[in-house]
Design a protein around this nucleic acid. Structure first.
Length: 190
DNA sequence: AGGAAGATCTACT
DNA sequence: GTAGATCTTCCTA
Protein backbone atom coordinates (compact mmCIF):
# COMPACT_ATOMS: atom_id res chain seq x y z
CA UNK A 1 0.00 0.00 0.00
CA UNK A 2 0.98 3.65 -0.20
CA UNK A 3 1.11 6.34 -2.84
CA UNK A 4 2.61 5.35 -6.17
CA UNK A 5 5.85 7.23 -6.67
CA UNK A 6 7.27 8.93 -9.73
CA UNK A 7 9.26 5.85 -10.71
CA UNK A 8 6.00 4.00 -11.28
CA UNK A 9 5.12 6.45 -14.05
CA UNK A 10 8.62 6.67 -15.47
CA UNK A 11 8.09 3.67 -17.76
CA UNK A 12 6.54 2.83 -21.10
CA UNK A 13 2.91 4.11 -21.21
CA UNK A 14 1.60 0.65 -22.04
CA UNK A 15 3.21 -0.85 -18.93
CA UNK A 16 1.87 1.97 -16.76
CA UNK A 17 -1.62 1.67 -18.27
CA UNK A 18 -1.73 -2.04 -17.45
CA UNK A 19 -0.32 -1.63 -13.97
CA UNK A 20 -2.73 1.17 -13.06
CA UNK A 21 -5.61 -1.32 -13.29
CA UNK A 22 -6.75 -2.28 -9.80
CA UNK A 23 -5.09 0.77 -8.19
CA UNK A 24 -7.13 3.31 -6.23
CA UNK A 25 -7.59 6.83 -7.55
CA UNK A 26 -8.14 9.31 -4.73
CA UNK A 27 -9.70 12.76 -5.13
CA UNK A 28 -9.27 14.87 -2.00
CA UNK A 29 -11.82 17.65 -1.46
CA UNK A 30 -10.86 19.30 1.79
CA UNK A 31 -12.08 16.88 4.46
CA UNK A 32 -13.87 14.62 2.07
CA UNK A 33 -12.36 11.81 0.03
CA UNK A 34 -13.73 10.45 -3.22
CA UNK A 35 -12.14 7.20 -4.22
CA UNK A 36 -12.44 4.52 -6.87
CA UNK A 37 -10.61 1.55 -8.33
CA UNK A 38 -9.19 2.13 -11.80
CA UNK A 39 -10.80 -0.45 -14.10
CA UNK A 40 -10.07 0.88 -17.60
CA UNK A 41 -7.12 2.77 -19.11
CA UNK A 42 -5.55 3.67 -22.45
CA UNK A 43 -1.91 4.38 -23.36
CA UNK A 44 -0.94 7.30 -25.58
CA UNK A 45 2.47 8.01 -27.07
CA UNK A 46 4.27 10.96 -28.66
CA UNK A 47 4.47 12.30 -32.24
CA UNK A 48 4.54 8.76 -33.66
CA UNK A 49 1.02 8.12 -32.31
CA UNK A 50 -1.67 9.58 -34.62
CA UNK A 51 -4.30 9.54 -31.86
CA UNK A 52 -2.12 11.36 -29.33
CA UNK A 53 -2.44 14.99 -28.35
CA UNK A 54 1.31 15.09 -28.92
CA UNK A 55 0.99 13.92 -32.53
CA UNK A 56 1.84 17.31 -34.00
CA UNK A 57 4.85 17.83 -31.78
CA UNK A 58 5.45 19.98 -28.75
CA UNK A 59 2.82 22.69 -28.34
CA UNK A 60 1.79 24.86 -25.41
CA UNK A 61 -1.30 22.75 -24.68
CA UNK A 62 0.47 19.36 -24.76
CA UNK A 63 3.78 20.29 -23.13
CA UNK A 64 2.92 18.28 -20.02
CA UNK A 65 3.09 15.06 -22.06
CA UNK A 66 6.73 15.89 -22.77
CA UNK A 67 7.46 16.68 -19.13
CA UNK A 68 7.82 15.03 -15.77
CA UNK A 69 5.95 11.71 -15.35
CA UNK A 70 3.43 11.46 -12.53
CA UNK A 71 1.56 14.70 -13.18
CA UNK A 72 -2.03 15.19 -14.28
CA UNK A 73 -2.62 16.10 -17.92
CA UNK A 74 -6.16 17.34 -18.47
CA UNK A 75 -7.87 18.57 -21.62
CA UNK A 76 -11.34 18.97 -23.04
CA UNK A 77 -13.16 16.89 -25.62
CA UNK A 78 -16.79 17.62 -26.52
CA UNK A 79 -17.35 19.47 -23.31
CA UNK A 80 -15.86 16.67 -21.20
CA UNK A 81 -12.61 16.81 -19.23
CA UNK A 82 -10.20 13.93 -19.86
CA UNK A 83 -8.04 12.77 -16.95
CA UNK A 84 -4.57 11.58 -17.91
CA UNK A 85 -1.41 10.88 -15.96
CA UNK A 86 1.86 11.69 -17.69
CA UNK A 87 3.79 8.43 -18.13
CA UNK A 88 6.88 7.67 -20.20
CA UNK A 89 10.49 6.56 -19.98
CA UNK A 90 13.00 9.37 -19.35
CA UNK A 91 13.24 11.60 -22.42
CA UNK A 92 10.16 10.09 -24.04
CA UNK A 93 6.60 11.36 -24.48
CA UNK A 94 3.33 9.82 -23.32
CA UNK A 95 0.38 9.63 -20.96
CA UNK A 96 -2.26 7.23 -19.69
CA UNK A 97 -5.96 8.08 -19.97
CA UNK A 98 -8.14 6.95 -17.06
CA UNK A 99 -11.36 5.78 -18.71
CA UNK A 100 -13.37 4.23 -15.89
CA UNK A 101 -13.51 3.73 -12.13
CA UNK A 102 -15.34 1.48 -9.74
CA UNK A 103 -16.54 3.94 -7.05
CA UNK A 104 -15.57 3.06 -3.46
CA UNK A 105 -15.74 6.15 -1.24
CA UNK A 106 -17.78 9.33 -1.37
CA UNK A 107 -20.39 7.80 -3.63
CA UNK A 108 -23.13 10.14 -2.36
CA UNK A 109 -21.06 13.17 -3.31
CA UNK A 110 -20.30 11.68 -6.70
CA UNK A 111 -24.01 11.19 -7.29
CA UNK A 112 -24.65 14.78 -6.35
CA UNK A 113 -22.10 15.89 -8.94
CA UNK A 114 -23.54 13.58 -11.53
CA UNK A 115 -27.04 12.24 -10.87
CA UNK A 116 -27.64 8.76 -12.31
CA UNK A 117 -30.15 5.98 -11.89
CA UNK A 118 -27.69 3.14 -12.14
CA UNK A 119 -24.49 3.13 -10.10
CA UNK A 120 -22.64 1.52 -12.99
CA UNK A 121 -23.15 4.69 -15.01
CA UNK A 122 -21.59 6.95 -12.38
CA UNK A 123 -17.92 6.76 -13.38
CA UNK A 124 -17.85 4.41 -16.38
CA UNK A 125 -16.39 6.73 -19.00
CA UNK A 126 -13.64 9.35 -19.14
CA UNK A 127 -16.03 12.32 -19.17
CA UNK A 128 -18.29 10.76 -16.56
CA UNK A 129 -15.64 10.15 -13.97
CA UNK A 130 -14.16 13.64 -14.15
CA UNK A 131 -17.60 15.11 -13.56
CA UNK A 132 -18.31 12.78 -10.63
CA UNK A 133 -14.94 13.55 -9.04
CA UNK A 134 -15.05 17.30 -9.76
CA UNK A 135 -11.93 17.24 -11.88
CA UNK A 136 -11.35 19.96 -14.45
CA UNK A 137 -8.51 21.88 -16.03
CA UNK A 138 -7.70 23.69 -12.80
CA UNK A 139 -5.89 20.47 -11.76
CA UNK A 140 -3.76 20.36 -14.92
CA UNK A 141 -0.11 19.69 -14.03
CA UNK A 142 -0.74 18.67 -10.42
CA UNK A 143 1.58 15.85 -9.27
CA UNK A 144 -0.22 12.63 -8.25
CA UNK A 145 2.77 11.34 -6.30
CA UNK A 146 1.99 12.90 -2.91
CA UNK A 147 -0.82 12.37 -0.43
CA UNK A 148 -0.91 16.13 -0.04
CA UNK A 149 -2.10 16.44 -3.64
CA UNK A 150 -5.76 16.85 -4.52
CA UNK A 151 -5.46 13.74 -6.68
CA UNK A 152 -3.18 10.76 -6.13
CA UNK A 153 -3.06 7.00 -6.68
CA UNK A 154 -2.75 4.34 -4.00
CA UNK A 155 -1.16 0.99 -4.58
CA UNK A 156 -3.48 -1.97 -4.18
CA UNK A 157 -3.32 -5.60 -5.12
CA UNK A 158 -6.01 -8.01 -6.13
CA UNK A 159 -6.34 -10.72 -8.70
CA UNK A 160 -8.08 -10.10 -11.97
CA UNK A 161 -7.72 -10.82 -15.65
CA UNK A 162 -6.70 -8.00 -17.95
CA UNK A 163 -8.63 -7.53 -21.17
CA UNK A 164 -7.25 -5.66 -24.14
CA UNK A 165 -8.68 -3.89 -27.19
CA UNK A 166 -8.16 -1.00 -29.58
CA UNK A 167 -8.57 2.47 -28.11
CA UNK A 168 -12.07 3.91 -28.15
CA UNK A 169 -13.21 6.93 -30.10
CA UNK A 170 -9.91 7.71 -31.80
CA UNK A 171 -9.90 8.67 -35.46
CA UNK A 172 -6.64 6.97 -36.40
CA UNK A 173 -5.40 4.23 -34.14
CA UNK A 174 -2.10 2.40 -34.04
CA UNK A 175 -1.99 -1.24 -34.99
CA UNK A 176 -1.18 -2.16 -31.41
CA UNK A 177 -4.09 -2.54 -28.98
CA UNK A 178 -3.60 0.05 -26.25
CA UNK A 179 -6.80 -0.07 -24.21
CA UNK A 180 -6.76 -2.17 -21.04
CA UNK A 181 -9.54 -3.11 -18.66
CA UNK A 182 -10.42 -5.49 -15.85
CA UNK A 183 -12.28 -8.37 -17.42
CA UNK A 184 -15.85 -8.76 -16.25
CA UNK A 185 -15.90 -5.57 -14.18
CA UNK A 186 -19.33 -3.92 -14.54
CA UNK A 187 -17.87 -0.40 -14.35
CA UNK A 188 -15.87 -0.71 -17.57
CA UNK A 189 -17.28 1.78 -20.12
CA UNK A 190 -18.17 -0.96 -22.63
C1' DA B 1 -12.59 36.81 -35.46
C1' DG B 2 -14.42 32.68 -37.17
C1' DG B 3 -14.48 27.94 -38.35
C1' DA B 4 -13.72 23.25 -37.43
C1' DA B 5 -12.36 19.20 -34.88
C1' DG B 6 -12.54 16.35 -30.97
C1' DA B 7 -9.28 10.26 -26.55
C1' DT B 8 -17.72 12.13 -25.27
C1' DC B 9 -22.43 11.67 -23.59
C1' DT B 10 -27.35 11.34 -23.81
C1' DA B 11 -31.60 10.42 -25.72
C1' DC B 12 -34.20 8.45 -28.96
C1' DT B 13 -35.62 5.01 -32.60
C1' DG C 1 -27.29 2.22 -33.79
C1' DT C 2 -27.39 7.04 -34.81
C1' DA C 3 -27.99 12.09 -34.21
C1' DG C 4 -27.46 16.16 -31.88
C1' DA C 5 -25.68 18.80 -27.94
C1' DT C 6 -22.11 21.43 -26.31
C1' DC C 7 -17.59 24.09 -25.45
C1' DT C 8 -12.65 24.30 -25.32
C1' DT C 9 -8.79 24.67 -28.06
C1' DC C 10 -6.44 25.18 -32.22
C1' DC C 11 -5.64 26.97 -36.79
C1' DT C 12 -5.97 30.34 -40.33
C1' DA C 13 -6.53 34.91 -41.72
Amino acid sequence: MGVLSREFYERDPEAVAKDLLGKRLVRRLGDEVLEGVIVETEAYYGPEDPASRAHRGLKPHNRLMFGEPGRLFIYNVHNNWMLNIVAHAPGDVGAVLIRALEPKKGIETMKRNRPVNEITKLTSGPGRLTKALMIDKSLNGVPVTSERSEVYVLDDGSDFEIGRSHRIGVKADLERELRFFIKGNPFVSR
